[in-house]
Amino acid sequence: MTMKGKSLISITDYTKDEYLKILETAAGFEANPNQKLLSDKVVASLFFEPSTRTRLSFETAANRLGARVIGFSDSGSTSVQKGETLKDTIIMVSSYADIIVMRHPREGAARWASEVSSVPVINAGDGANQHPTQCMLDLYTILQTQRTLNNLNIAMVGDLKYGRTVHSLVQAMCNFNATFHLVSPQELKLPSVTKMHIKDANLKYEQYTELADVIPFADIIYMTRIQKERFSDPIEYEKVKNSYVLTKAMLEGCKPNMKILHPLPRVNEISEDVDTTKQAYYFKQAENGVYVRQALLATILGAK
């Protein structure tokens, strides 16, 4: 198994053993984050659309490994504005840097970049398609809180239709005998293609419309934001916008090991009074993003 030089575009590009190796390496960085393993490397951070957590955590990861970071956080200040193609930008940057981390609004942009680049590419989000490093940090956090990835009851709540983090996490957890509890309004149910992944893995899922129904038996509650623009009928949005809000009072009777995850940003779907409970784990989850991204950069650049 060698991941050196291997791009990470889609969660299916890596095998189960490869994810597990990354998670193990990430644990080493959590114990000892400042390791100057990449002091002779340049990491290009190309964010063609804005991002807070993903960009900052990748750049923190690179800095903690001693690498230098070049790039941009908004394509407005680049030649993209002059009409440069993605292909030309990537060919040029790949002659400057040792690895490219990129986010782009178009689906498939990262795959295309990996085909024209002479250095490996890590996809930090391509439109509504994939965000594999988020999925890996979700797996790392689940493993950290449950001490296992196997046989868990995973509740997913909110926008299950468009949420790319949900689709990738379902796909990844299909490797670990999970049972899925899917809580969403009718309009935002998990797409049938993702349900097929669950069926193909011979696993079970249940669909719910009430969040309270899953709290007693969930090991993980994965919350997501419901976005107004996803609704064709604004009245429908008004009806459901407050129905998937998790409050401290609702946590009574949950399993002692249960933890709440959220890819962030949150709006109102997790009430602030939850933040101080021992179930709240979303900020730690965001922190874990740095260790997982350190593990990916170090592994792909051959330093681990």
Partner: peptide
Amino acid sequence: GCITNHENITTRFKVIDKAEMKLKCHYC
């Protein structure tokens, strides 16, 4: 939203169901 509709890229699709003729875009 697929990148192939915005840049000059040769499209590629996997045939995921031959009987139903269902395709999957290699890019998006």
